[in-house]
Simulated scan of single mutants.
Amino acid sequence: MKLPRDVSGDDLARALEHFGYDVVRTTGSHMRLRTYRNGEHYVTIPRHPTLYVGTLASILRDVCDHLKINKEEIIRYL
């Protein structure tokens, strides 16, 4: 499935809330999210109006590897 091109950092953070991630802190232009599903895991998301496709793909890959799910499951919420 092709990644969407118009996803903001805030949109991605809201989508990850469906998978147990919560915003722990916001420093400058970045958000730090944490989950305890399948063990503790942190991910940092830039709060840009539009994320680069490579950045989005990297964050999704990291989250999917930790949660053992497909990217398509997260993309449905974007």
Score class of each variant (00 low, 15 high):
Leu33Gly: 03
Lys71Gln: 11
Ile59Asp: 01
Ser8Phe: 05
Cys64Asp: 14
Gly28Pro: 10
Arg14Pro: 07
Tyr21Leu: 02
Ser29Met: 09
Arg47Thr: 06
Arg34Phe: 05
Asp65Phe: 09
Val43Thr: 01
Lys2Met: 08
Gly54Val: 02
Pro49Phe: 13
Gly20Glu: 08
His18Thr: 02
Glu17Asn: 05
Asp6Met: 08
Val63Asp: 09
Phe19Trp: 06
His30Met: 10
Ile69Pro: 11
Lys71Ala: 03
Asp10Val: 04
Tyr21Lys: 08
Leu33His: 02
Glu73Thr: 04
Leu51Ile: 10
Arg34Tyr: 05
Leu3Tyr: 00
Lys2Asp: 06
Asp65Val: 00
Ser8Ile: 12
Arg32Tyr: 05
Arg14Glu: 15
Glu40Ile: 08
Leu67Tyr: 12
His30Leu: 00
Met1Ser: 04
Ile74Asn: 10
Tyr77Met: 10
His30Arg: 15
Asn38Glu: 09
Asn38Phe: 06
Ile74Arg: 05
Leu16Cys: 01
Ser8Val: 13
Thr50Gln: 10
Arg37Asn: 07
Gly9Gln: 11
Asp10Ala: 12
Tyr42Cys: 04
Arg61Lys: 14
Glu72Pro: 01
Asn70Ser: 10
Lys71Asp: 06
Arg5Tyr: 01
Asp62Gly: 02
Leu16Asn: 09
Asn70Thr: 12
Gly20Ser: 09
Ala57Gly: 04
Tyr21Thr: 15
Asp65Asn: 15
Asn38His: 12
Leu51His: 07
Asp10Gly: 03
Lys2Glu: 07
Val24Ile: 14
Arg25Ser: 13
Glu72Trp: 11
Ile45Asn: 05
Asp10Met: 09
Ile75Thr: 08
Gly28Cys: 14
Ala13Trp: 02
Leu56Lys: 06
Asp22Ala: 11
Arg25Tyr: 02
Asn70Val: 11
Thr44Ser: 11
Thr35Ala: 02
Val53Cys: 00
Lys68Pro: 03
Glu17Thr: 05
Met1Tyr: 00
Lys71Glu: 13
Asp6Lys: 14
Leu56Asp: 00
Tyr21Glu: 10
Ala15Lys: 08
Ser58Ile: 01
